[in-house]
Amino acid sequence: MNKASLTQDVPPDRVEAMEKIIERPKPVKVMILGGVDTGKTTLTVYLANALVEQGLKVAIIDSDVGQKGILPPATISLALAEAPFSSLGELSPLKHYFVGTVTPNQHFAEMVVGVTRLARLAQEVADVVLIDTTGLVHGPGVELKRMKIEAVGPDIVLALDREGELAPILKPFEGKLDVVKLQVSDKARSYSRGERRDMRREKWRAYFRGVRPITLDLSKFVITGTSLFQGRPLSEEEKGLLEGIFKWLILHGRKVGGRYFIVKADVGEGPRSVDRNVLRYIDFDRLSNILLGLIDEDGFCLGLGILKLLNFGDMKAEILTPLDDGELARVKEIRFGRMRVREDGEELGLLDRDAL
């Protein structure tokens, strides 16, 4: 299920925006801003089709990590629109950038870097680059959008401004950017959190359909997105001391800088008040079903995997992935995400940025 599809009922200001894009020297980068359920993706689909009909090469960057049209979720994706289409889900992705979660909170760096890198790539192959963004436009979302605009440098910003809610984002760019404000259609539908979760479940299920189990030798890959393998291993003395104090079975431990990072299982009742400036820990069972990005030599995401078992002693990981052998041969890096999801699409929760 996709939230947006092509419509023929087009308000006049959308047509004017399309004509403005056509008039600009190419390549032209267009960033689409708006809160939740303001019709950003519907606008993207309309513009892409209208521009393709004009004979232009159109690239679409889908950065709405939680409500992705171009699969999979938890990534930022680039696709080329070379023929008419009805929804983003029909497009074949050209590149992905791994974010590792379905919410941009705590992941501003990945969001900005991903959109910026894909925009650079897109303008090399397209006349028009359309950038569809998340609906996070309040609180920290203001800073996220500001950083995206500064990093990408769009030629045009299309602002679906509902009751002036985009003013804090747009104000710093007054007189500097070509901002086109558009009315939010009264036909724009609102979706509940439950509906959004159900839509993601369907998309996860579609992406992971046909996954297969594989075993990876982690020593052959660069491991990023986690402190699990940074620093030095615990000494036996350190391990024994921590196990005795906290009544843990320590399955893996490192000293990273001045802090200990522990993977543990509880074996008894012990003190649970921990100074996180000295010690961080995660329960071993919370490592299962963590989302992984399978990354190529250029830092782009070839596809996703789900971690099922991590054997620290042998440095082996059992994962599920839809990638074939040819794609897996191109993987140079394993990047840990910050959410847990099953292959049937059920989301098991988000992890804090510093959890790993």
Rank of each mutant, 00 (worst) to 15 (best):
residue 127 D to V: 13
residue 127 D to P: 13
residue 127 D to E: 15
residue 127 D to M: 12
residue 129 V to S: 13
residue 129 V to G: 13
residue 130 L to P: 04
residue 132 D to I: 10
residue 133 T to P: 08
residue 133 T to L: 06
residue 134 T to P: 10
residue 134 T to L: 13
residue 135 G to M: 11
residue 136 L to T: 12
residue 136 L to E: 09
residue 136 L to M: 10
residue 138 H to G: 09
residue 139 G to A: 15
residue 139 G to N: 14
residue 139 G to E: 15
residue 140 P to Q: 15
residue 141 G to C: 09
residue 142 V to R: 11
residue 143 E to C: 12
residue 143 E to Y: 12
residue 143 E to K: 15
residue 144 L to W: 07
residue 146 R to Y: 09
residue 148 K to F: 06
residue 149 I to K: 00
residue 149 I to S: 04
residue 150 E to L: 15
residue 150 E to C: 09
residue 151 A to P: 02
residue 151 A to E: 03
residue 153 G to H: 05
residue 154 P to M: 08
residue 154 P to T: 05
residue 154 P to K: 06
residue 154 P to L: 04
residue 155 D to Q: 06
residue 155 D to L: 06
residue 157 V to G: 00
residue 158 L to H: 04
residue 159 A to F: 01
residue 159 A to V: 01
residue 159 A to R: 00
residue 159 A to M: 02
residue 160 L to P: 00
residue 160 L to I: 00
residue 163 E to D: 14
residue 163 E to G: 05
residue 164 G to D: 00
residue 164 G to I: 07
residue 165 E to T: 03
residue 165 E to P: 01
residue 165 E to K: 02
residue 166 L to D: 01
residue 167 A to M: 07
residue 167 A to L: 10
residue 168 P to A: 07
residue 168 P to F: 06
residue 169 I to G: 00
residue 169 I to T: 00
residue 170 L to C: 03
residue 170 L to V: 03
residue 171 K to P: 06
residue 173 F to P: 01
residue 173 F to G: 01
residue 174 E to P: 03
residue 174 E to N: 08
residue 174 E to D: 13
residue 174 E to M: 05
residue 175 G to M: 10
residue 175 G to A: 11
residue 176 K to D: 06
residue 176 K to T: 03
residue 178 D to F: 01
residue 178 D to L: 05
residue 179 V to W: 00
residue 181 K to V: 00
residue 183 Q to E: 10
residue 184 V to M: 03
residue 184 V to N: 02
residue 185 S to N: 03
residue 186 D to Q: 15
residue 186 D to R: 14
residue 188 A to R: 03
residue 188 A to S: 09
residue 188 A to Y: 02
residue 189 R to W: 03
residue 192 S to C: 09
residue 193 R to T: 12
residue 194 G to V: 14
residue 194 G to Q: 14
residue 196 R to F: 04
residue 196 R to T: 02
residue 196 R to A: 03
residue 197 R to F: 08
residue 197 R to H: 06
residue 198 D to I: 13
residue 198 D to P: 06
residue 201 R to W: 11
residue 202 E to Q: 15
residue 202 E to H: 12
residue 202 E to R: 14
residue 203 K to V: 07
residue 204 W to P: 01
residue 205 R to A: 14
residue 205 R to Q: 14
residue 206 A to T: 11
residue 206 A to N: 11
residue 206 A to M: 11
residue 207 Y to S: 13
residue 207 Y to E: 07
residue 207 Y to P: 03
residue 208 F to H: 08
residue 208 F to L: 09
residue 211 V to I: 10
residue 212 R to L: 07
residue 212 R to G: 10
residue 212 R to S: 12
residue 213 P to Q: 13
residue 214 I to P: 09
residue 215 T to D: 13
residue 215 T to H: 05
